[in-house]
Design a protein around this nucleic acid. Structure first.
Length: 401
DNA sequence: CGAGATTCATGTGAAGTATACCTTTAGGCTTAA
DNA sequence: AAGCCTAAAGGTATACTTCACATGAATCTCGTA
């Protein structure tokens, strides 16, 4: 006990490594966003009419992960909100991430979530979807106002629930007389609009904005800018920023990843009682991020998903080489179900689950034909070999195996 | 030898089922006039 | 008679199952050169 007290004492005595950790977190909206002046300007231009209480065009934002779509959008929105508040303009902006499982991944849930923003409670199930529409519309139509709805990662939603809901959304305006509603769709998938009903397409993307990936130098700028607020200057060793940027640029210029790398590297260093961030901390950070990402994702998934993943991990450890096939997974999965006393799902369902795991990026699955020997998914792990073991361990523990 | 038929192991779509939850409604009970 | 509560009826969303059919290249079959 005494030792622990001492430990905490020491901890507090120690000069903290971080000056401010928030600025490195992914939900932080910085004041200054390097290399996105153009996009900010354009977006501001498109949305400026709201301040005159005119409905701005619907906007569609494209760009790969970590190119600043969300940050820029949120930034512009907060600016608009500020002005609106100052002038007491009845403008309401709602941000909604459609990817979050069990939050907004169906039309119904998206609406329910939207409604919740207005303080309307919609039950998790039971109501007809168009009834929810009516309730929602009726409520927002009671007051004259301008509404901007931001649908982040909208491609995920449409992939799951079809593009009908987009059509419904675009039609909302004609049902309302007090309210003008604009939609900002954000998509990681550059080809997203290709397979969409042309009617919807034209009305939903009246304006489009493309975010190109950052290059390594730009990411360095971003990192420097943020670390200025996050750390004292002497903490970051030579080459650290460069290395973070290089790691992140390796894929396609994912700034979010770069920032996360830097933050976690800081945390690693802090835990090692160091007062500086060195190159090796970045490598540790990379591994930890990968592991945490999967773990976090996995823990929030239903047991069945966990079991399926565990089965995949199992095989990949035993069968070091070569791809994994659905049938093998299903066999192992079933045996695990037995030992956890859980009713196994059908192979049909497990097949879908595997497809979903693929969507999450934990695994890479693709359908191949093995000719005479049938047809199956060829599955490879999408996570580094080094983390497999610890993930597997954590999974087993979580399932009390 | 090569074109077409077969075959395997599973993908995939549609339709059905179970469950959990919703609103509506009708009946019964209580209460107050 | 009005008001309130309850339980049944009728409806929906979601996760899952069942059924049936689709796939597509390795392999087989068999007619032909």
């Amino acid at each position: 006990m005494v030792e622990l007290t001492q430990f905490f004492q020491d901890y507090l005595q120690k000069k903290p490594l971080f000056k401010s950790k928030v600025v490195l977190q992914s939900n932080y909206t910085p004041e200054y966003i390097p290399h996105r002046e153009e996009q900010i300007q354009t977006m501001a231009g498109i949305l400026a009419p709201v301040l005159r209480m005119e409905k701005p065009s619907n906007l569609f934002v494209y760009g790969k992960v970590g190119t600043g779509k969300t940050v820029v959008t949120k930034y512009v929105m907060s600016q608009i909100e500020n002005v609106a508040k100052e002038r007491r303009l009845p403008i309401k902006i709602i941000y909604l991430n459609c990817k979050l499982k069990r939050v907004a991944d169906t039309e119904y849930r998206m609406l329910a979530h939207l409604a919740k923003e207005f303080g309307i409670d919609i039950p998790p199930t039971g109501l007809p979807t168009d009834e929810v529409y009516k309730t929602f519309l009726k409520y927002i139509n009671t007051k004259k106002q301008l509404l901007i709805i931001i649908l982040d990662e909208i491609d995920q939603l449409v992939k799951k629930s079809g593009d009908e809901l987009l059509y419904n959304l675009t039609r909302i305006n004609s049902e309302l007389n007090n309210v003008e509603l604009s939609i900002i769709g954000i998509s990681n998938d550059l080809l997203f609009m290709e397979n969409i009903d042309p009617r919807v397409k034209s009305s939903l993307s009246e304006e489009e904005l493309v975010f190109p990936p950052y290059n390594a130098v730009q990411i360095q700028d971003i990192l420097r800018e943020r670390s200025r607020f996050a750390f004292d200057s002497e903490i970051i060793r030579e080459g650290v920023i460069e290395k973070c940027a290089a790691y992140a640029a390796r894929e396609h210029g994912d700034a979010r990843r770069a920032l996360e790398l830097l933050r976690v590297a800081g945390e690693m260093a802090e835990r090692k009682n160091k007062y500086s961030i060195e190159l090796e901390d970045i490598d540790d950070a990379e591994e930890k991020i990968e592991r945490d990402k999967v773990l976090d994702l996995v823990h929030t998934q239903p047991k069945q998903f966990q079991l399926t993943l565990l089965s995949i991990l199992d095989i990949s450890q035993n069968v070091t080489e070569g791809p994994i096939f659905t049938g093998d997974i299903y066999e192992i999965y079933k045996s695990y179900c037995k030992s956890v006393a859980l009713k196994p799902l059908t192979q049909r369902r497990v097949s879908d689950i595997i497809a979903e795991l693929d969507m999450c990026g934990i695994i890479n699955a693709r359908v191949i034909s093995k000719g005479r020997y049938g047809r199956t998914r060829e599955i490879r792990l999408g996570i580094p070999e080094s983390t497999v073991h610890s993930i597997r361990g954590a999974l087993k523990e979580g399932l009390s195996l």
